[in-house]
Simulated assay, not measured.
Amino acid sequence: MNTFAPAATDSHPTTSAYPNPLGLTSVLSGSLPPSLGTLTAPDLYQVDAVFDRRPQSEEVAALHSLETLNALSAAGYPSVTLHVSDRRLEIKNTNLDQLKRGLATFLADHLAAITEEIQKARASAQSRLASAAEAEGSRAAAIATKAEQITFIRTSTTP
C-alpha cells in the first residue's frame, strides 16, 4: 500500500483531493444571446456552462489543448472551441440544439476522461516516488549496517 501522500495544494492536489470527475451542472441562460428565439438569432454562439467544482490547473490545460480540439473535431464538432473562465466553461461556436443533440454528452464524457487521466498520472507518480523513497531507505539502511560493522580496535603493541 502506498503510504506516501504529499500534502494537497491548489496547484498540486493529491489524487484523492478531487475524487469526482470534473463535470458541468447547467447552462448560464443569462449569458445566451438576447435574440435567441427570434428571426435575428445567430446560428452559432457562445454557451456558458457552470462547472460542478473549480477545475484543477491540469484540467484547464487539457481543455485548452490541441488534443481536446482534435477530439471535438473527431466527434463532429470541428468549429467548437472551449475556454475555461474561473468556474465556467465557455463553449464557443455552438448552440443549444447542438448541445442537446450530443455535444453535452461528449463534453461530460471528455471532462470525466481528463480527470481520470490526471488521477492515473498522479497515482503513477506517487507510486514511483514511494518506490524511490523505499529504495533510498533500503540503501541507507544497508550502508548504516555496513558502517556499524566497522570497529576500531587497537592491535596489541609493546611499548
Rank of each mutant, 00 (worst) to 15 (best):
87 R>C: 11
91 I>S: 00
61 A>P: 11
72 L>S: 06
102 G>P: 06
58 E>H: 09
13 P>W: 01
130 A>N: 10
45 Y>F: 08
37 G>F: 03
29 S>N: 15
23 G>W: 02
97 D>Y: 05
59 E>P: 12
157 T>N: 11
49 A>C: 09
8 A>H: 02
154 R>W: 05
87 R>H: 10
139 R>S: 13
80 V>T: 12
37 G>V: 01
70 N>P: 03
56 Q>D: 13
31 S>P: 00
4 F>W: 08
38 T>S: 11
144 A>C: 05
17 A>F: 04
142 A>R: 14
106 F>K: 03
26 S>K: 13
7 A>E: 14
79 S>Q: 15
52 D>P: 07
20 N>A: 15
23 G>T: 12
2 N>V: 10
154 R>D: 13
140 A>Q: 14
23 G>I: 02
67 E>H: 10
14 T>Y: 10
28 L>A: 12
12 H>T: 10
130 A>H: 13
48 D>T: 03
15 T>A: 14
2 N>C: 04
17 A>N: 03
81 T>M: 05
31 S>K: 09
88 R>Q: 06
139 R>W: 08
69 L>K: 15
105 T>D: 12
113 A>Q: 13
62 A>Y: 02
35 S>Y: 01
49 A>W: 00
37 G>Y: 01
146 K>G: 15
34 P>L: 03
13 P>T: 04
86 D>E: 09
76 G>V: 06
151 T>A: 08
75 A>Y: 06
80 V>L: 05
55 P>T: 00
48 D>E: 12
49 A>M: 15
120 K>C: 03
155 T>K: 14
24 L>C: 07
40 T>P: 01
77 Y>A: 01
135 A>H: 07
21 P>L: 04
111 L>I: 02
32 L>H: 00
27 V>Q: 01
86 D>A: 13
85 S>T: 12
51 F>L: 07
101 R>K: 14
157 T>G: 06
82 L>G: 04
99 L>Q: 04
133 A>L: 15
93 N>V: 05
33 P>D: 00
56 Q>P: 03
79 S>N: 13
34 P>H: 05
107 L>K: 05
27 V>T: 07
46 Q>T: 14
90 E>D: 12
79 S>D: 14
